[in-house]
């Protein structure tokens, strides 16, 4: 009896955990009346998705989000690779103090600095632009830390061999360190994309037109009570927004979990 109790509890919790998702999925394909009254045998419909698609420039939002996560990832790879390499393999005075300064940024969350970051973005002419949403996240202390750890574990002999072959500092970085850190890059990419696909507060503040708005901000505007859309339509919109990431997650589940681990445990 006891032997079955625990697996049953584990399974129950799992069902409870995905129930919000299941309900939304179910409601998205039914009309409101059937959805809120839980008529299980009710016919399926795609009407909600038609309403959703007609209600906002979703294609544009998808494109903006895609552009945003790509831009941030590219910026992060470049800046964090260079800085991580500097911290891992070059020696100069003040390096350790500087590293602690960089680590401080782990706790100065960009989310908390919205007030002044808005002014910085304004004075740089970055308001209402994809670059404006992405810029504060590019020099990520977390990414620098991660790359430094990865580069530190590369044997020095490889670098010396490359130097003998005539590589300069950047050549060594590109030919030796970057290829050696490939798993770390993959992990960092997954975490970064998932984070920024989902980010909301800063994009909400910086953007004010459909041409720059990412999906999260678009979804929040679409589902706002003032917009007067019913819960089945909201469900359809939500399902549509999370579908790409969710499908990606289900396919690459192992890598995803591994990525969060590499990123978190250091």
């Amino acid at each position: 009896m006891i032997r079955y109790l625990e697996p049953a509890a584990a399974l129950l919790l799992a069902l409870l955990w995905i129930s919000p998702l299941i309900f939304a999925l179910w409601a998205a394909f039914h009309n409101v009346g059937d959805a809120v009254n839980f008529r299980l045998g009710a016919p399926l419909t795609l009407d909600n998705f038609r309403t959703v698609w007609a209600g906002a420039p979703w294609l544009r939002y998808f494109f903006n989000t895609f552009l945003l996560v790509t831009l941030i990832l590219a910026g992060q790879f470049l800046l964090c690779t260079l800085a991580g390499y500097a911290f891992a393999q070059t020696e100069f005075r003040g390096r350790d103090a500087l590293f602690i300064l960089v680590l401080m940024q782990l706790f100065i969350l960009p989310e908390v600095l919205i007030v002044e970051n808005y002014r910085v973005a304004a004075s740089l002419g970055l308001l209402d632009s994809i670059l404006g949403i992405g810029a504060p996240y590019m020099a990520s202390a977390f990414g620098i830390f991660l790359m430094r750890q990865a580069f530190k574990s590369v044997p020095k002999e490889l670098e010396e061999a490359a130097r003998v072959e005539g590589c300069g500092t950047l050549g060594v970085l590109w030919r030796v360190y970057v290829p050696a850190a490939r798993p770390t890059y993959l992990a960092y990419a997954l975490v970064s994309v998932a984070t920024h696909w989902n980010n909301f507060l800063w994009p909400l503040i910086v953007t004010n037109s459909p041409s720059t708005r990412p999906l999260t901000v678009g979804l929040s505007l679409f589902a706002a009570p003032e917009n007067g859309v019913d819960i089945a339509v909201i469900s359809a919109a939500t399902v549509m927004v999370i579908a790409p990431l969710l499908v990606g997650f289900l396919i690459f589940q192992r890598q995803f979990v591994q990525a969060f681990l590499t990123a978190g445990v250091k």
Partner: peptide, 26 residues
């Protein structure tokens, strides 16, 4: 080598200064 170190760091430091350290002070 020290010069290379600083050069490698400078892009990240500039961005950090602009979007983390300066805003904190401000």
């Amino acid at each position: 080598r020290a010069l290379h170190g600083w050069l490698l760091l400078s892009p990240a430091l500039i961005m950090l200064a602009t979007f983390a350290f300066y805003p904190s002070l401000a």
